[in-house]
């Protein structure tokens, strides 16, 4: 494994709590740093792991600025400003797209709001470049309902990338996929994360093994005995442990031990 350093903070969760009729989340604090890796254009892949119904999706909405926490704030970027909706992309579990637009038009809407002045020809060229890169060139004229789940997921992710969002939250990206598809999605996410050094993927999942195998950092979300609401109970630094960026990590006995250990803490 090549040398790496954790540099400036890119995203910071500060004392987040959320209460509806009861306390859902409490005392959530974490930081995502820019990881610089020698000889690589390395983005960040972090994960939030927890049981279903623990409040991952609520935290997810708070991180994206779609939901205001009861207390605390999410700070973003090099100047650590409070997050606003539109700064963090979301790829929902069921890959929501605009069903009335073709795939090309779905991707174009990302570019329409990217904040850069581009002609239609330039947009078309960028869309074709990404579509070619992610095996979607033959599907640009189709509608979302004509694509498979995996293809829709790719379109959803690229749509967010084209909007210019460096932070992309993925809600259960491996849910309901077979083993072969999981590997393809893993490759896709790694490809996205290395497109730009500041690209940061935040994966919310209960598939521990797959998620940990592509993450550099993971946070375990769980409830603590005698306390209301879920919080982050542990940070797992996969880089320090030597598991990050290792394509064969699933085969390592120490990694399997780590998974068992994480499972016991949920």
């Amino acid at each position: 494994m090549s040398n790496f350093t954790r540099q400036e903070v890119l995203l910071q969760a500060e004392n987040i709590s959320l209460r509806f009729d009861k306390l859902i989340l409490r005392d959530i604090n974490f930081q995502i740093h820019n990881i610089v890796r020698e000889g690589h254009n390395q983005g960040q892949v972090v994960s939030l792991i927890g049981r279903s119904g623990i409040g991952k999706t609520q935290l997810f909405k708070i991180l994206s600025g779609l939901l205001q926490p009861t207390t605390g704030k999410i700070l973003l970027g090099e100047d650590l400003h409070p997050v606003k909706s539109g700064e963090v992309g979301i790829v929902h579990q069921n890959y929501i797209l605009f069903n009335h637009r073709t795939i090309e038009a779905n991707l174009k809407i990302g570019l329409d709001h990217c904040g850069k002045e581009m002609t239609d020809k330039e947009k078309e060229s960028v869309i074709k470049e990404y579509a070619g890169h992610f095996d979607l060139l033959d599907h640009l004229k189709k509608y979302p309902m004509q694509l498979s789940g995996g293809q829709r997921q790719r379109v959803s992710i690229i749509q967010q990338v084209l909007t210019g969002n460096k932070f992309i939250l993925l809600d259960e990206p491996f849910s309901g996929l077979d083993a072969l598809m999981i590997d393809r999605v893993k490759d896709l996410l790694l490809k996205i994360s290395t497109l730009h050094e500041h690209n940061t993927l935040i994966i919310v999942s209960h598939d521990i093994e797959t998620t940990l195998s592509i993450s550099d950092t993971a946070w375990i979300m769980a409830a603590q005995e005698g306390k209301e609401g879920a919080t982050i109970t542990e940070e797992v630094d996969l880089m320090k442990l030597g598991f990050a960026w290792n394509p064969n990590v699933k085969k390592e006995a120490a990694f399997r031990d780590l998974i068992e250990s994480v499972k016991s803490k949920l």
């Binding site: 909706s85 929902h92 904040g115 909007t163 969002n165």
Partner: peptide, 23 residues
């Protein structure tokens, strides 16, 4: 209309009027 579709518009940096028009 699902909440998620509205959220998608927000993540794509659309304002409320653009969201109304699109969705």
């Amino acid at each position: 209309i699902s909440r998620q579709e509205i959220e998608l518009c927000k993540t794509l940096r659309m304002n409320n009027w653009q969201t109304l028009l699109e969705v």
